[in-house]
């Protein structure tokens, strides 16, 4: 076993264990932290595969931005996860069976028999001046430009969807809004109505009271 292989197995092992911990711990904050560890070790795996850009972006974007935001949300909301996870183990036997079956299948199909070094050459080793960033950027902006733009559209749709579903205009009975358009357009007739009516003479109260007695 070479040193690189050793590093790979250590990182892959950490990633697998932290993934398992992430779904099994009760505290959501701890779960998020385990996920961070899984991301970092995966980033390490990518670094060993000479995909430096991807590894760093994974740490910057997922660990630095997404997970931090996620932790904020989790800490602000008071969610009782123990309650949600109740009955979680009810389907455990079935789940274990299914996952064993899937794992066995995956091992048969994706194992060294089919994807081993005899079938696929080991990846090319690049020198120190090789730029992984450029290797990703050039196809991204040329051959895959169409897909790149579509991904942007997908994000746009995501934004529209999220805003549509969360933006709530509370009814005016709760909150008062100012609608400048309407305010400017208002005319005296809308607010103020002159009514012609006959004079009303109030009946003499005392007289009536006297009658009752």
């Amino acid at each position: 076993m070479t040193f690189l292989q050793f590093i790979f197995y250590v990182l892959a092992g950490i990633a697998a264990i932290s993934g398992l911990m992430m779904i099994s711990v009760k505290n959501p904050v701890k779960a998020a932290l385990w996920l961070v560890l899984a991301f970092i070790s995966t980033a390490g795996v990518w670094l060993t595969a000479q995909a430096e850009f991807l590894g760093l972006v994974l740490i910057l974007v997922y660990v630095g931005a997404v997970m931090v935001l996620f932790l904020f949300v989790v800490m602000m909301l008071d969610i009782n996860v123990a309650q949600i996870k109740e009955g979680f183990t009810r389907y455990l036997p079935l789940g274990v069976l299914v996952s064993i079956a899937i794992f066995a299948l995956m091992y048969l199909v994706l194992g060294p028999d089919r994807f081993g070094l005899s079938h696929y050459p080991s990846p090319q080793e690049f020198g120190a001046n090789y730029s992984n960033t450029k290797a990703i950027a050039v196809p991204l902006y040329t051959t895959h430009a169409y897909a790149f733009i579509l991904a942007a559209v997908l994000l746009l749709v995501g934004i529209i969807a999220a805003i549509t579903l969360t933006l709530r205009r509370r009814p005016t009975t709760e909150v008062l809004y100012q609608d400048i358009d309407k305010q400017v357009k208002v005319r005296a007739e809308d607010r103020f109505r002159m009514v012609k009516m006959d004079a009303v003479v109030e009946a003499d109260v005392k007289k009536e009271e006297g009658k009752d007695e």
Binding site: Y146, A147, L150, A151, V157, G158, A161
Partner: peptide, 17 residues
Amino acid sequence: LITMYLGLEIMSLAIYA
């Protein structure tokens, strides 16, 4: 495969919302 997947996601996301 990539554009197929992206098209599917754009369509599905819009309908989910």
